[in-house]
Amino acid sequence: MGKSMELRLSGTGGQGLILAGIIIADAAIRDGKNSVQSQSYGPEARGGASRAEVIISDEEIDYPRVAHPNVLLVMSQEAYDKFAADLDRGGVMIIDSTYVQERPGIDGAVYTLPISSTAREQVGREMVANVVALGAMVRITGVVSRRALADALLARIPRGTEELNLKALETGWQLAEKVLH
């Protein structure tokens, strides 16, 4: 991993992507790095699209926006159509196959995982698809440590949902494990 990683988490409002971005940024700080998290509400918010951006760096972070993400999470068709082309050359794209069916060719490493359906079927709640995605994304990219990710997760979820969320994280981790091996 280079000195700076730029992530974009995109999908539909209500999928919890902003919270997922906050958790990643928080985890990076726990790893002793700098991070910034921003959400752009631009005009795309109207179509129900949502995106969170995170920059993780060992150095001071000047510009807080992400133009060409090294890591791109895509959890809706609309987000795919809008953002897939922004992926940095050599970047990693993680696609939720539950909601993204049409995928015109893109350069880079593309991981297609049934994130939302796995959340629904294996964890029991589609609501935690964002955490399943986090588990998979961190397993694939290593942007933050697993320990920091779990700590940040536990710090930012409602009390009483710890077990559910840790299960979601582990499920996502295993989902990625399967495609990596």
Binding site: A25, N34, V36, S38, P64
Partner: peptide, 9 residues
């Protein structure tokens, strides 16, 4: 708005 909504360390 950028600084207001930005989260950082």
């Amino acid at each position: 708005e950028v600084v207001g909504h930005l989260r950082e360390k």
